[in-house]
């Protein structure tokens, strides 16, 4: 692969394999374990267990894919945004998501997988992205609900990731969290305007909240007792809180914020459990979650088609720019000779 390795990419000789540990590997492993136990950071050139590398590569690339696929439901409304201010905000937000995808691909590349490979996996249907983006954005109020609930859930997930043990991931998350603070607010304000608007607007807002509420709770992942990988991720300081902890915290925030909106959450079982100190909510339909994850959601095929189409339609452009660069480099070399 001619793609240059990321600056910090780890030399391949350090990968551990199923054989007797060498002296270097033992030193590497001890250092890794020490850094994790000190809650310090792992950097790309450090020795790391193969499973740690794989877990991160999968998680970061899925995260990047989610940003990129997540552009689509919102891009769907750029052309119809009902005011010029909203149009500009929405464009900036969708564009930010492309940027966030790029920050994350950049972090993932430090683990040794070129972006090109990640893109191929995505359009071949081999890689996953957040299931939430397989739901359709059918009204303008969905722009509000996506910002408030979906970005809200994403932020609740991402803030602890700023302290993830893998340095490049944490740094990308810091940048993303800074930029995303506007995403949730603009969503909230869209809903607030609608909720205080005409009866039709208010109805639109409530309908969107009803549709996005449960899927946004499912963004935190399966319940803890059904989330086998979580424990290891927490031991590695990638994950800092369990799925259920984060979900509970999120429900607690939303239940307050929805009052400001003058709307309701479609869940009459929300309550604070004094014994566990956790927010509880109605059971979620994990069958639906698994169905969407398995590709049988409302928009899976559409989202993939659109990404594939953009990638394939752009091939001649990427090739042209590469060819131009090659020609220029050749001319420069001739001149130098």
């Amino acid at each position: 692969m001619a793609t240059a390795p990321a600056v910090d990419q780890m030399p391949s000789g350090n990968r551990s394999e199923a054989r007797t540990e060498t002296e270097d590997e033992r030193a590497g492993r001890e250092q890794f374990e020490r850094l994790i136990s000190e809650d310090s950071r792992i950097e790309p050139r450090d020795w790391m267990p193969e499973a740690y590398r794989k877990t991160l590569a999968r998680q970061i690339s899925q995260h990047a894919h989610s940003e990129i696929i997540g552009m689509q439901p919102e891009a769907n409304w750029i052309s119809r945004a009902p005011s010029l201010k909203r149009k500009a905000i929405l464009m900036a937000k969708v564009q930010d998501e492309a940027g966030h995808g790029l920050y994350l691909y950049s972090a993932a590349e430090t683990l040794g997988t070129p972006r090109d490979k990640m893109t191929e996996d995505l359009i071949a249907g081999k890689a996953r992205y957040s299931s939430i983006f397989n739901y359709p954005a059918v009204t303008w109020a969905d722009m509000g609900a996506i910002g408030w609930l979906v970005d809200g859930a994403a932020i609740a997930n991402q803030v602890p990731l700023c302290r993830a043990s893998y340095g490049p991931y944490g740094r990308a998350m810091v940048r993303i969290c800074k930029e995303e603070s506007f995403h949730q607010r603009q969503g909230f304000e869209i809903l607030l305007e609608l909720a205080n608007g005409t009866p039709a607007q208010k109805e639109m807002a409530q309908d969107a909240v009803n549709r996005w509420y449960a899927p946004s709770l499912m963004m935190f992942g399966p319940p803890d007792d059904d989330s086998p990988n979580s424990k290891q991720s927490m031991a590695w300081n990638i994950k800092r809180f369990s799925n259920d902890e984060l979900r509970s915290r999120f429900v607690g925030m939303m239940v307050e914020q929805v009052k400001v909106l003058g709307l309701t959450l479609p869940d009459d079982e929300i309550r604070f459990n004094e014994d566990t100190q956790q927010w509880e909510h109605a059971p979620l339909d994990w069958n639906e979650f698994k169905e969407v994850l398995a590709g049988r959601g409302p928009c899976n095929a559409q989202r993939m088609e659109r990404r594939r189409e953009a990638h394939e339609d752009g091939a001649w452009v990427r090739e042209a720019a590469a060819a131009y660069a090659d020609k220029r480099a050749a001319t420069a070399q001739q001149k130098a000779a």
Binding site: M1, A2, T3, A4, P5, A6, N76, S79, E109, P114, R115, D116, E312, D313, A315, W316, R318, E319, A321, A322, A323, D326
Partner: peptide, 24 residues
Amino acid sequence: STTGDDGSTAPAPLAPEKRQPWPL
């Protein structure tokens, strides 16, 4: 969206990407 059109001004089929991806 009707804002974009179908880009059909240049219909030639494309060979798969021959060149290496853009460098980092």
